[in-house]
Nucleic acid binder design. Structure first.
Lengths: 360, 360
DNA sequence: CCTTGGCACTCGATTGTACCGAGTGCTGAC
DNA sequence: GTCAGCACTCGGTACAATCGAGTGCCAAGG
C-alpha cells in the first residue's frame, strides 16, 4: 500500500508527534537516519500522504499531524511491544503482593495500569460465568424481601434480593435455603439458568421474548411445599437473570482519571472525557464494542463516541481457565504512547487472569 | 466585631464574587439597595476589611476578592438555607425510587448530590456499628483461607477472609461456622469486639497498644475442639479488627468529579484536585477531621491539604437510629454556592439516613 | 468625625503593528 | 525521481498605545 519511504516518513511523523505534541515538519523528519533524502522530497511525500488521508495540516505553513488513519497504520505495523524492565518488575511486585477481596484487587489493578502508562485505566470485572458457587445462604431481610448470598469459587460474594410473600414462614425459607444450597453448589450461573429454563416448575415460558421479565414474586402459598418450590424457582430465576444483558449493574473500575486532565489543553475536552469515564455503562459497552470487532486498539473516531474523538482506547481481555472473563483497557489521547500501552495492557491482563485463577 | 455596614459590604462582595468569579469593585457594591452610601465610603470600608483580613486585592486597581476568613464570616452568618423546590422534588423522587444494594444506593446518592450542586460529591458509607448481624456463613475458599460472610440487618453483606491451618478439617470448619453463627446473630460489630476482648480464649492481651495486631492465624490443632475454639476466636478478631482505624479499606463514593474540571482555570489545579479525590483514604480522613471539629464547612486552607487550598468542603453526617453512621459532603471551589450546598447536603443526609433505617 | 465628590494614579486587558521563522508548494535543473 | 532554490503563508512573539475598572487620598461639607 505505502512504499517503504512513505511508510518510514509516516512512522517518523507519528512518533515525533507523540513525543512532542507538535506538528512535525519536513526538517524534523529528515533528522531520522533511516530517511536519507532531502526535505523537499519528504515534503512531496508528505503531500501524497495527506492526499491519501494519513496526515493533515492545521494550516498552511505548519507541520503535519497524523490523522486517525495515520495512527491506525502506525499501530497496525507496530511490532509486538515489550514492557520496559522497570514496569515489568512493578507488575511482578504488584501481583506478588495482591491479595484479599476481588474488588480491591481489581481497583488496585486499575491503579497499577494507570501508573504504568500515565493514562486512565479501566478494569471490567469478570463475569461470573466461569465461577462456580461454593456456598449459598438465604436470609430474610424484611417482611417481604429475602437475600440470596452466594460465595463463589474465587472468594467473591454475589448477592441478589428476591421479593417474597409476607406469609412465607421462616421454616419455609429455611427449607428453600437448604434446597437452594444443594441445587447451586458447584454450579456456574450459566448452569443455574439452564436448570431454571429446563425443569424446576415455574419457568418464564411465554413472556421471554420482547416483554421485560416480571419481577420475581412468589404467589401466596396454599400448599406449603409448593411455596418452597416456587421460592426456589424465583431465586434461581433471579440469579440467572443477573447475567442477562438487561443488567445495568455494569460495574467498572477506573484508575487515574485525574491524569486525563493533563492530556488536553481544552478544559471542555477534559470535562467531557471525565464525564464519560463516570458513566460506567458507556465505558463497558465501548470496550465491549471494540473487543467485538476483534480490535485491541480503537483510535479517535473509530468508535462512535463524539466526546472521545481525541482519545484512543487500548484493550485486552483477560482469561481464567482459557475463557475470557473480563477486560482491561487504557484510555489516552490519540497521540498516546501506543507501544507502551499495548505492552502494559498485555502484561497486566495475563497476570490478572493468572491471579484470579489462583483464587485471589 | 464588624459593624452592620461593613458586614453588608462583605456579604455583597462574597455573593457577587461567587456569582461572577470576578474581583468586585466599589461601584458594584453600591448597586446593592441595602448599601446606601457612596463608592468612596465603600472603598474606605473595604480598605478596613482588607486590613482585618477579610478581603484581598489581586493587584492595585482591581476589585476585592474575599479571603478564606471572609468566606468564613459569610458562611457563619448565613441563615439556615432551604433547597429550591425543584431540587427538593428531585431528592424526593430519588429516594422514593431508591432501592436495591447498599452500594448502589450510596453511589447513586453521590450522583444525586453532585447533580443538585454542580460540584463533586462524596458519600462515606455507614460504619457497621449500628447494624446487627442477621446471618453468617463460614466457607473455605482455598486450602489455607476461609471466608466469613455476614448478612447485616439492612441487607448489606460484609466479608472477611481468615487464614486457616491446612490441617483444619471440613468438619471442624463446619462446627466453627455453626458456633460463629450462634455467637454473631443479632450482634453489632462493636459487640463482637467486646466478646473477643472479654472472654473467648485467645484474646490479643498485651500487644494491643502500639504494635500492629498480628494477622489472624490458627496454630496447628492438637485437640480437635481446641482448634474449633481457636478458629472461632480468630474469626471474631478479624471481624472486630475491621472496625479499627488501622483499616485502609476506607471506601468512599465520589460522584461528579468531572464537574471540578470546569471550576478552575488552571489545569494543574484540576489535576491535583482530581488526584486527591481518587485517594479515598485522604478524602475520608479529611471529612472526618472537619466533622471532628464540629464544623460543617471547611474553607480553603482551613483543612491542611495544600492541593485543596482553592476548595471548600461542605459536609453533613447522616444518622440511623439517632446514631451517626456516615457522612456525605460536597467539594467545590472556595467560591462555591454555600447556601445551596448546605441545603442540599442537609436534605440528602436526612433522607439517606431514613432510607437506610428502612432497610433499603 | 463620618461622608462624599473629585482627581491622580495603577495596572491588567485589549488592540494594532511589525517581524521572525518554521514550514509549505512549486519550479526548473540534474 | 530527487533536490536546491525561492516565494509565500501564517502562527507566535514582542512592543507600544490605549482603555477602563478600580484604587487611594484629599479637601470640602454635613
Amino acid at each position: 500500500m505505502l512504499d517503504a519511504r512513505k511508510s518510514a516518513i509516516l512512522n517518523k511523523v507519528v512518533t515525533e508527534h507523540i513525543a512532542t505534541a507538535q506538528p512535525v515538519g519536513s526538517a524534523h523528519v529528515v533528522r531520522d537516519p533511516l530517511i536519507d533524502v532531502s526535505p523537499a522530497t519528504v515534503r512531496s511525500d508528505m503531500a501524497a500522504l495527506e492526499r491519501d488521508g494519513y496526515l493533515t495540516h492545521p494550516h498552511t505553513s505548519a507541520g503535519r499531524v497524523p490523522t486517525d488513519k495515520g495512527y491506525r497504520f502506525f499501530v497496525d505495523q507496530l511490532s509486538p511491544p515489550a514492557l520496559d524492565p522497570a514496569g515489568e518488575e512493578q507488575v511482578q511486585d504488584f501481583f506478588a503482593r495482591a491479595h484479599g477481596e476481588l474488588e480491591r484487587v481489581l481497583r488496585d489493578t486499575s491503579k497499577l495500569l494507570s501508573q504504568l502508562t500515565d493514562y486512565a485505566a479501566v478494569v471490567v470485572p469478570p463475569t461470573h460465568d466461569t465461577l462456580t458457587v461454593r456456598s449459598s445462604l438465604l436470609v430474610r431481610i424484611a417482611p417481604r424481601a429475602a437475600l440470596i448470598v452466594l460465595v463463589l469459587s474465587n472468594g467473591a460474594v454475589d448477592r441478589h434480593s428476591v421479593e417474597i410473600d409476607e406469609s412465607t414462614t421462616d421454616d419455609q425459607l429455611e427449607r428453600a435455603g437448604a434446597r437452594l444450597a444443594a441445587l447451586l453448589a458447584g454450579r456456574t450461573a450459566g448452569e443455574v439458568e439452564q436448570v431454571v429454563t429446563s425443569g424446576a416448575g415455574a419457568a418464564p415460558g411465554a413472556g421471554a421474548g420482547g416483554t421485560p421479565p416480571a419481577p420475581p414474586a412468589v404467589p401466596a402459598a396454599v400448599d406449603c411445599e409448593a411455596a418452597v418450590d416456587a421460592l426456589v424457582a424465583a431465586c434461581c430465576r433471579e440469579i440467572a437473570g443477573r447475567q442477562l444483558p438487561s443488567q445495568d449493574t455494569d460495574e467498572v473500575y477506573v484508575g487515574g482519571a485525574a491524569r486525563m486532565a493533563e492530556q488536553f489543553p481544552a478544559v471542555q475536552t477534559v470535562r467531557e472525557v471525565l464525564s464519560i469515564l463516570e458513566q460506567s455503562f458507556v465505558v463497558v459497552s465501548l470496550i465491549r464494542d471494540v473487543l467485538a470487532q476483534g480490535q485491541s486498539v480503537s483510535i479517535g473516531t473509530e468508535h462512535g463516541l463524539a466526546p472521545l474523538a481525541e482519545c484512543s482506547l487500548v484493550v485486552a481481555p483477560y482469561e481464567v481457565a482459557d475463557e475470557v472473563v473480563g477486560t482491561i483497557g487504557v484510555l489516552g489521547p490519540t497521540r498516546m504512547n501506543y507501544s507502551q500501552a499495548l505492552a502494559a495492557v498485555a502484561v497486566v491482563s495475563q497476570h490478572l487472569g493468572r491471579q484470579l485463577a489462583a483464587g485471589s
